[in-house]
Structure formats: C-alpha cells, structure tokens
Design a protein around this nucleic acid. Structure first.
Lengths: 233, 233
DNA sequence: TCGTATCCGGAGTACAACCTCCGTATGAGT
DNA sequence: ACTCATACGGAGGTTGTACTCCGGATACGA
C-alpha cells in the first residue's frame, strides 16, 4: 500500500521517475527543510527531530515519511551549506598568487562553522551522507590539497603541514564554538588566528608525527557514530 | 606510578559528627570510587552512573545513597587527579629559570587530559564541584598566572597571551582527544605542540581580542550544564 | 460531485538514563 | 544470642528521544 515514494531529493528538474508529489506533500517537505536548516544551524546536528517537525508545523510522522533517517534530513538540509564550503575552497584557488589563498580559506571555513553549527558538526566528523554531499566534500578536499601545495611553495605554509592538521583545527574550532557561542562569541576568532599563525611559520622544534589519513578518517567516522547521527542507514 | 588510593575524601577525618559508617558501607563506598575513577577516566564525566554501580558490584541505590548527585561522585572520584594537576603547576614553578616552566606545564597538562578523560572534561568546563576541588583548581590557576608572568618576562611567551587562551587550548584538546582517542591516539600531541608553538612566538599580526575572564567563566559553566553534569544541586 | 491514491497527525512502542521507594538483609552494640 | 539502626538492591516511576501504526483527511483526476 504505502510505498516509498521517496522522490528526488535533489532538484525538481529530474525526470519524473515516480508520480509527482501532491502539492501539500511538497509544501510540507519544504517547510521541514527550512525548519531543519534553521535548527541545525542554531543547535547542531544532534537537535531533536521532533523540534524540527514542530517548527515546520508538521507531525513527526510526516518528517519521517519524507526523510526516513536523520542522515537523509541532514544531507538535504545542508547541501547548500556544503556547496558553499566547496565554493569557498574553489574561489580561494582563484586568488591572485600574491594573496594567501590557503589562510583565507582557513579563516573563512572557521567562520562558516560559526555561522552554522550544523555545518560545524559536519566538518568535524564524517557522517554517512548522501552521495551528492560526499562528492562536494571530496571536491573541497581536492581544492584544499591544491591550496596547501601552493601555499607551501609560496612559503606561507610550513612544509611539514598535512591535511589532517586542518581537520584537527576544524574539530577544535567546533568544540570552542559549542562552548563559547553564547557568552564569548569572539573566542573562536582568536584561537583560530593563533592556530593559523602556527600553520604559517615552521616551528622551532619538529612537530610530533601526524595521524595518517586512514587514522583520521576512522576517528571522524567514529565521532559521527558516537554523536548519534549514524545509527542506521 | 602513584595509585595512592587511601584517602577518605569527605568526612573521614573530620570530627564524629555522625557515627562511623558500617564496614560494608565503607567498603562499597571505596568500590564505587574505584569504579568511578576507572570509568570516568575511560569514558569521560558523562558516563552512565548505572555502569559505575555495576562495575563496583553494587546496586544503583547504594551509589545514590553515598553520592547523592553526580557532582558529589565526580568530586570525590577526581580529587586525586585534580590534586595532581595542581601539583604539576606548582612543580613547574620550581623549574630552574632556564627551563621554560610554562611550556612544560602546558604539555603535561594536555597529557593529563589524555590519561584521564574525566579530568579532560573537568578542565574544559566548570562543573559545580566540591569546595575542596574548587580550591585546588583556584590554586592551580594562581600558579599558572605566575608561570605566565615569568614566561613572558623570559621572552618565551608572547606578551599578548592571556589565561583564557590556555582554557581554549584545553577545550580544543579535550575535543580532539574524544575524537581521536581510539584510532589516532597521537593526534593531540601534534596539535598541542602546534598551538604551544603559537603561544611562544608573537605572531606576525595582532591577535583578535581575547574573551574576558567573565565571559569565559560563563561559557564554561554553560558547557557543564549542557553536558548534563550540573543539572541539579 | 465523487472515488481513491496519497498524505497527515498524533497516539503508541521502544529504549536508555535518571532517580526513588520499600521490603529485606546484616553489622555491631548489649 | 538478640535487636535494630544501618545499609542493601532491584523494581518501578519519570523523562526525553527515536521511530511506527493506523484511522481519518484531502488533493486531484474523472
């Protein structure tokens, strides 16, 4: 009787593989996405789904009907933000060589985390997300790698820097935002500037060895699990 | 190395305001403290109390009878660790002036956070704790202030450094530990070294302004509330 | 206007953690 | 040995969140 109408999570221009949704259904869908964006931005990805349903003016069952898992909802609600993140990285690649694209990227990325705590959470762990979001993240990673290489070549990034160092900063920044958002809203700016400075200049002593990409990936996947966002598929 | 487990914490050596506890009660009390130390160290301060009772081989009611609130249990279970933290700061004050006591302190403090995730949580938020623990923390803070001043005078700490910067590092380190403990256990070492380097050398550009002590205090108090460790009394 | 495929919402189930009540057991003083 | 204040432990109430079921409402095509 009740089949997964599922439907195009992406854009409405994809060919109608299933019958089109009823207009009330589509309207509710948009309301849920809007509410989810707002609440994830404000409270992070662990916000109770019932709160989202309530803000959308919709029953909890309707939310689950449209987005069977938290993953689906997060993916759909944050595509725009992740796109923004990817675009940021891409645009920093266009910077004139004189400007320090990598540093600008790091600053802005931290700022994005602040503007949207959902994105902040997303960037500090590896949720099992939509293919589309995953693509975006991977694209961003490629851009960042390029930015790193250029910055190293230009001497504005210490040679022993690795991509995992950036992840560590994003994790740290996310935590600092969670703690200080309400009462010390500028704190993250100071801390990230401090760390960015450390990225730029080769230290006096050699750094302890970096975690391998695989280690870091495993850690961030586990963080997502522990944070209750990856329970099921 | 130490493992000094004696120590009746609360009212053992205080005058007989109440009759002495029955031996089975005292034995259970110790078992609970031991279990709590282990579990807090391994899982952080948010560990379920029932798990602690179970490991202690005791009913949940017994745990609540001895420690009416999480705060009481945390205080009692972590006095030793906080003492260690205070002693670390004090000992760093004894360093020969040639050594950089402040940097050594920061390194060791981060290491303490790793060795005991409960202490890690404790240092990255302001729980409403026992007077004794609060005293220890304040004493440590005084030592740290002295260490800061000396280090600045010796030129091994940037002049614009403030105590809140250290708190930010402890918060960041705690988060990184939580994420990487299992699969990238060395990551914190690299990140803290990076940040410590930034502490030591004055940056090229002036730092964004630091949060005020009051702002930081409010933030850390709120973190404790949100993390469910300060709910009641 | 009418029939029905589709959709809705809230009540209901499951589960984990917190915390309390109360009947039972036992250490320790006489 | 006897008594009872003290302590025990688990059952069970409470809350908060995730997730499902199903009777009833409604959009939409005919």
């Amino acid at each position: 009787m009740e089949q997964l109408i599922d439907a195009h999570i992406g854009k409405a221009d994809s060919p109608p593989r299933q019958r089109r949704m009823r207009v009330d259904a589509e309207r509710n869908r948009q309301a849920i996405l809007q509410a989810a964006s707002e609440i994830f931005a404000q409270s992070g990805l662990e916000a109770p789904l019932e709160e989202i349903a309530e803000r959308a003016g919709v029953g909890i069952a309707t939310l689950y009907r449209r987005f069977p898992s938290r993953k689906a909802l997060v993916s759909a609600a944050l595509v725009a933000k992740v796109t923004e993140y990817e675009r940021l990285a891409r645009e920093c690649l266009q910077c004139e060589p004189s400007a320090d694209g990598f540093s600008i990227f790091v600053e802005r990325a931290c700022a994005l985390q602040v503007a949207d705590r959902g994105l902040g959470d997303l960037l500090s762990m590896t949720l099992p997300l939509d293919a589309e979001v995953e693509q975006l993240r991977m694209a961003a990673d490629r851009h960042v790698t390029l930015l790193m290489e250029r910055a190293k070549a230009a001497g504005s990034l210490r040679p022993d820097f690795v991509a995992e160092d950036l992840l560590l900063l994003l994790i740290a920044n996310s935590a600092i935002i969670h703690v200080t958002a309400d009462h010390a809203p500028g704190a993250w700016k100071r801390f990230s500037a401090l760390v960015l400075g450390a990225f730029q200049t080769p230290g006096l002593r050699p750094l302890p060895k970096a975690p391998s990409p695989a280690q870091m990936a495993a850690s961030m996947r586990r963080a997502a699990l522990e944070h209750g966002c990856g329970g099921r598929v």
